[in-house]
Write a protein that binds this DNA or RNA. Sequence first.
DNA 1: CATGAATGAGAGTTCATTCAT
DNA 2: GATGAATGAACTCTCATTCAT
Lengths: 221, 221, 221, 221
Amino acid sequence: MEEVESTPKPSRKELEKLQRKREILNAAKACFLEKGYQNTTLDEIAQRAEFGKGTIYNYFESKEELLLGLIEQFMKDGVVIAEEAILHFPGTAREKLTNYVKTVLKMGTEHEHFHMVISEIHSLRTQGFEDRMKSIGKLFEDIWKVPARLLQEEIDAGRIKPKNPFYMACMFDMMVRVFGVGTQQDKFPIKISDHDEIADLIITTFFDGMSIHSYEGQYNG
Amino acid sequence: MEEVESTPKPSRKELEKLQRKREILNAAKACFLEKGYQNTTLDEIAQRAEFGKGTIYNYFESKEELLLGLIEQFMKDGVVIAEEAILHFPGTAREKLTNYVKTVLKMGTEHEHFHMVISEIHSLRTQGFEDRMKSIGKLFEDIWKVPARLLQEEIDAGRIKPKNPFYMACMFDMMVRVFGVGTQQDKFPIKISDHDEIADLIITTFFDGMSIHSYEGQYNG
Amino acid sequence: MEEVESTPKPSRKELEKLQRKREILNAAKACFLEKGYQNTTLDEIAQRAEFGKGTIYNYFESKEELLLGLIEQFMKDGVVIAEEAILHFPGTAREKLTNYVKTVLKMGTEHEHFHMVISEIHSLRTQGFEDRMKSIGKLFEDIWKVPARLLQEEIDAGRIKPKNPFYMACMFDMMVRVFGVGTQQDKFPIKISDHDEIADLIITTFFDGMSIHSYEGQYNG
Amino acid sequence: MEEVESTPKPSRKELEKLQRKREILNAAKACFLEKGYQNTTLDEIAQRAEFGKGTIYNYFESKEELLLGLIEQFMKDGVVIAEEAILHFPGTAREKLTNYVKTVLKMGTEHEHFHMVISEIHSLRTQGFEDRMKSIGKLFEDIWKVPARLLQEEIDAGRIKPKNPFYMACMFDMMVRVFGVGTQQDKFPIKISDHDEIADLIITTFFDGMSIHSYEGQYNG
DNA sequence: CATGAATGAGAGTTCATTCAT
DNA sequence: GATGAATGAACTCTCATTCAT
């Protein structure tokens, strides 16, 4: 926006800086996943990143900024993942979404990250926090837009019920992330390690519902 | 000695003590909801409870114990709520669960509590933490058992598909709590304030699925 | 001193009060011996004394007062013990003092108390502390006066060297309490459990010295 | 790499660190001597050391560690002092030990430290406390070994009585530290400011005993 | 630009003391 | 007089952040 050239010139310096930022974020991610945001100290992050503690402050304004950076990165990755798993995957909507479930599950612990992310948001008190939250919300929407677009196509094709596709996408994504990822984790009261089983549960519920004689054709919603 | 009835003796002293405990828990709950567990200080809780800081330690061993107490209370209430809304509510399974969704939604912000609860669990590092987590997990199961029993009856009656009713109950509950309660809150990227609309979304999805021509009768799961 | 009647009238009330005081002091002593002054809480003392915490404050102004009371009691007992073991014990000076050493040793752990007493004095900050310390010092002197009187008699009889008997009594008492009692305790680097052996070490050193050809007769001190 | 000499490398950094440690220890020592361990706050130590409170924790793990560090330092110094004053001092055993007494006395208030050290040990409750105590006991032994070696030589030379030299060294050291140092201090019930007088008292008692006709030659101990 | 020692506000927790019952 | 729940000042320790090197 500030510059006119499409990609100005990622000078060596700039690239190195970006590289460093990513390294630090990765170290932070690992720490946060292990012990939670609040229980992680900057010393630990610095040690893991193999940088001095002060150096981190050359790249991030504060510990909170580190978490926010991570959240944004997580969301952006989420969009790419959804696009890969849904748009670029061949097959029916059902097959595409099944693939999406499995993809998210495959990321496993990595996506326990998700819970952490959601959890720790409470902890943040930065100034300008509200704005940041809004923009994070927007990123969530970006993720949901991907399945939502698919659902819209299916509605248009008369294959699924004409409900708000964005809402449905959100609900679906939550089923995957909370129930799906949850059941893979030890502390969750239910443990299902077979990805196929979880995917089947979610997909058949979402597409077909529980009822044996469902009331299709009579929707007025 | 003091009493004849089987129920031991809720002596005045005991009752007052319990009353105090509840007051403190309520103050803690309010604070935690407002600022999160980690950002709440004991001074704040004490001030809100209108007790001295030391007094709190006459009732709870530590700040963590306060959170754990809250979580357990929340879960136990959850069981009662589920029983009221499902078992003791007249009508079909669909009607019972619709009522359940609306009941949880009605508790609104109160149940944002739920998110907090889940979130902050990461923060805890108490000794004997694992045991506590196990017992909290058990309480979750107690909640899910209520809808699970209903689903089992429906399966037996041939009205819904023969899937693991406990898993389905868990997934349903999660849909309600995460999607349902979430959409009521400001920071959630989607905001739906109409409880009927949310309940309808969840219930029709869960019972009937999204597909227009569903594949009933062919389950091999 | 304040009253003219030699012993006014130890009314039942008064006696009970004294009895209570002693019970509390004993509880405090036991606790202090076990954990040290600073590590003992009033709750523990109250529990051990089988009184309410508040009750203790009807008998003693503060926790410090409890320690000071104990010290004074200890000292006063010390005088009686010295008199019993030295004055009222038949035999030569050597035999009397040997008996004194053994008596102190026999009180064993009870007199580890002594160390505690000396130790914790640092901790005290009461107002009027200096005065109290002075009066405790006086009590020490009362103890030392007992062996000092014996030594004076021996000097007069020409049986021991004409040195300041009070100083010598002090040095002797310290040898008994620090070295004698010390060697009986686990944490002390030297452990001698045989009382006769310790007594012999102290007495022969004190009376005869280490040298084989000593320089008697040439004192100019 | 950095150094050629066998002594590792007292790099400037290392030296500064050690210097800081010593400064902090000295501040702590001064505070402890003034008010006792328990009555000294970390704020006071920090203020006296002219460091921030947090800085202290960069050098010592805890307040207890500070005390233990001080104790160990005290003991180690004690060994050096004993060696200087006894081994490296010319003259007879009597002269050497007289010199030792005077040396300890000269350190005066500095060695009131000793009492504090011994006193406050009760207060400690660190984990691994027993081990630390053991090692402190060992350090005491190291001190006593120095005069003990001297006494052994005298025994071998037939100049002093054949008693356990280690026990005698301990008793002697205690006489010096408790009686000798004590009598120099205000709160002690006896005050003798003349070092020569104290040294004479201790030395003649220890070497020659109090008796005028002592029983040399007849030991059966 | 990298560093890590220094910092001190702020946290949870303890406990001697008070006082209403 | 006896009680023990209530109290809050005071404590040790942590850790995000700064800044001289």
